[in-house]
Design a protein around this nucleic acid. Structure first.
Length: 114
DNA sequence: ATTCTGACTTGGG
DNA sequence: CCCCAAGCCAGAA
């Protein structure tokens, strides 16, 4: 048979295939700690795709084993807006792991490397 | 096809 | 501390 039609160039990014990559990076986040979307994107080897990380996690099913709740924005705050239920769930899970929040709803980072 | 919005980040003011 | 512009990619209207 003829060569199969190449749907995209070998060097072209594969659209939404990065999801698995992001999930793998999120799994690496140690319990009781948090990482920003940008950090996750960087860990996944895709710097600059922070927004896509959020999108990938948004589509993540509730029965997933991926610790999506350990991902917050650069300000250390929960980035969810249009889903107060999920937002509350994230905070609940983090507090269950020992993560503290300040009055403004920002994560208090314990680990302070100096 | 085009436009807008979004679980974002970084840098400058 | 807050606000804004540019960069990024995917999905909904």
């Amino acid at each position: 048979m003829s060569a199969r039609v190449r749907k995209r160039a070998p060097d072209a990014p594969a659209g939404s295939d990065h999801a698995s990559r992001f999930y793998a990076a999120v799994r690496k986040i140690r319990k009781g700690t948090v990482a920003s979307y940008g950090e996750v994107a960087r860990m996944a080897g895709l710097p600059g795709r922070a927004r896509q990380v959020g999108y990938a996690l948004h589509r993540l099913p509730w029965d997933s084993t991926v610790p999506w709740h350990r991902v917050v924005n650069a300000k250390g705050e929960i980035a969810i807006g249009a889903d107060p239920d999920a937002k509350r769930e994230q905070r609940r899970r983090l507090e269950a792991e020992g993560v503290e929040f300040d009055e403004r709803g920002r994560v208090v980072r314990d680990d302070r490397r100096s």
